[in-house]
Structure formats: C-alpha cells, structure tokens
Design a binder for these strands. Structure first.
Lengths: 195, 195
DNA sequence: CGTCTATTTGAATGTACTCAAAAGCGGTGG
DNA sequence: CCACCGCTTTTGAGTACATTCAAATAGACG
C-alpha cells in the first residue's frame, strides 16, 4: 500500500487532497537492497527518509573504529542523521539497510518548501520530534540504570522482530556490550529455560 | 530582564507585539528556592517551564532507589517531563532546583491554546524538540562509546558552570558511575596536573 | 567447496562497584 | 559562637561484571 506514508502522517494531522498531492510531489521513492548504505559519515545528509518496508540500522563509528548502533528503524518510521540534516553538516552517522527496503525521501530543500506551503507539517514534525526525544531520553535512563542483561531483555521486548534481521554483533553494539559477552548472556538465558 | 523568554523564542520565530502579549498572558512567573521540587514522581506534569535564572536537575529514581540524573537544565532553557506532559500521565521524573531560580510556566492547556492561536509556535517547539532529540542521541552515543573518565571530561566541557551548584553525587549519577568512583577519577586528574 | 564473517568458548585482565570507615563541610539550635 | 548532626566526599580492600585476546566452531555466500 503505497499511501501508507499518508496514513502515518494522518496519525497526527489531517491533510486535504490538495495538500496530500503537494506532499507526494515533494518526495521520491527508492528501493534499497539489504546491506546498502543510504548515508555514510562525511557525506551531506540531504534526506529525511520514511521507511515503507524493511529495516535500517543507524550507527556511529568511534575513534577506536568500533561501531555503536544508535538505533534500529523499522517499517512505518522515519530516519535520518537529524543533527546533520538540520544543520547542513557532513554526516556523523551511517544508515544501513539490514533488510530489503523501500523508502520515501524528502530533501531538506523540499521539506522547507513543505513547511512553508503547508504549515500543518510543523505540527507533524514537532510531534514526531517530541516522541523521538522522549524515546532517546528513556534509552539513556535504561543505559544508566540497567545491567547488560536487563538491557538485553528490554531490547527484546521493544524490538521483537529485529532479531530476525540484525546480527548479534549489531545488537551487542546497540546494548553497549561486546558480541562475546552477548553470547554469554544468551547462553545463560537458554540454560535457565531448560532447567 | 524579564523579557528574556521572548528573546529565547525570537531565536527561532518572530512574534509581533500582539502575539507576544498573548503569549505572556498565558504564562505564569514563579520563584523557586534551592532544593525545592517543581515536579515529583506520580504528580501530574501540567507545566512546561522556561528557566529565566538558576539551574535545575531532572532525575529518575530506579527500582533500587538509586537516583539517575537525566539532565541538568540551566538558565535560558526549557524543562519538563516531556513524556508525561505530552501524554497527560503521572510524572516519572523529579525536577529539583539546585540553585535559587526563577521560571515561567506554561500549562498544557495554555500551550494548546497558544499553538491554536499562534501556529508559529508549532515551529518553535518543533525546532526545540529536534535539538533536544539530537542532544539526547549524542549523549547516548557518548555513554556507549566513552569510558567514565572520558564522559567526565566531556561533562566538564559541556556544563562548565554546573560544577558550582551540583554536588559530586549528582554529577556521578549523571555520568552513570558511583560517587566513590568519581572521587577516584578526580584525584587522578589532580595528581596528573601536579606532575 | 572454499572463503569470509559471525558466533561460541575459555582464560586472563581491567574497569568500576560494594561495603566500611574516616574526614570534611554546612547548617542549626542551644 | 561553637558543638553537634547529617550529609557529602575521600580512601581502601575485596569483589563483580564485562572486556580482551585467542582459538574453535558454525553459517552464509559466491
């Protein structure tokens, strides 16, 4: 259903036909194969993407060349390197498809046009940003208060489907632990399930 | 200068006199003594606050009764328990003045009125939320990639003034370490400065 | 089938925690 | 004014959680 992006928007604002058409005229459709990067560090981050289908992983590479998974993004959600998109700076983050994906993209230029022509979208992106903010805040609280094992359990509840497309190495880098230690945690979990 | 809240707003949107007056009519002024709580867990979170003067600490109390400092908020910034303010739920967070403070508060009801009457504020709060989001994301990256010592150094750069009003216990709980260990880090720092 | 990467396993290590006790500091009341 | 109380900070010993490194095993892909 290629209008699911409109349904996503209609969760927070209602558009008439004209506004919807105008919006659809500003976005482009893109298929993204598994493992492809739609953004890499240093590149201009010109697009905000809506994920129609598939899944992405946003990650940062630190000075020791370790990957930090910043977030997993699933179907019916939005993704970009927000800091660099907003401030027109070279990207700090990589965004990689971890499954066959289809996305719609709005360029920063077109987003400006959109916000100018249909100011209702200010409201839409306000609400989106507020949710994004509270989710990040919640994750910070979890990272600061929970043990690795508790964070892993919370992860499994929050992203039950992601385990099918993300590797354990990627999940470990989201949890802030090594793949080896995640392996140990998983073993303990299955041992407890048996006994 | 009691119009600094208008200056804060004018960083992102411009208001005419009428709009500014309408806004000022929707907010209330409040003095908050040091150590007073303007929000505690379980309370209704009805207000979004602008800090005119002073400093606040937002914290969460986990199941082991440990305090997690979610953020320090300084003069000329906004603070609330966003999740509960937006969803009209009882607060999860405490907000405590760590210095003599003066704030302006907008109630959730008045904010709705404001957004309805002056839709430009949708834009203002969109921009504010996006910044809040990227800051939280950045902090998550730091917490996942840096050692305790590196996080402490980064903290000192980000909040140079806060050390004057926050205790080390509070700073430790922001960094996700124990006060005892922060004490060790500080000692190592001074020892290195001497040699 | 062979190569490359992901995952598992284990031993040695390190970073940060717990617990306990002492020292420092600020506020309050006699 | 100072003596006491409570809280913060420091210090140290012992411990736990998670890492590093290395090697073996398993899986995925061409």
């Amino acid at each position: 259903m290629y209008t699911s992006i409109l349904q996503n928007i209609s969760k927070h604002i209602s558009l008439d036909k004209e506004e919807a058409d105008y919006f659809m005229g500003l976005i482009r459709f893109k298929e993204v194969p598994r493992k492809a990067l739609i953004l890499r560090e240093g590149q201009a981050c010109n697009y905000l993407s809506y994920i129609l289908l598939g899944a992405f992983r946003v990650y940062y590479v630190d000075e020791h060349l370790r990957e930090i998974t910043v977030k997993f993004a699933i179907a019916d959600s939005w993704v970009t390197d927000m800091h660099c998109f907003l401030n027109d700076k070279p990207a700090n983050l990589y965004i990689e498809a971890i499954d066959e994906s289809c996305i719609y993209q709005v360029s920063a230029t077109n987003l400006e046009k959109l916000l100018h022509h249909v100011p209702k979208f200010e409201r839409f992106f306000r609400i989106l940003s507020q949710y994004a903010y509270t989710r990040e805040q919640f994750r910070n609280i979890e990272n600061l208060s929970l043990s690795a094992e508790e964070r892993y359990n919370s992860f499994l509840e929050t992203y039950p489907r992601i385990t099918q497309v993300a590797t354990q190495k990627q999940i470990a880098s989201y949890l802030g632990i090594t793949p080896e230690f995640l392996s140990v945690l998983r073993k303990e979990k299955t041992l407890r399930r048996i006994s």
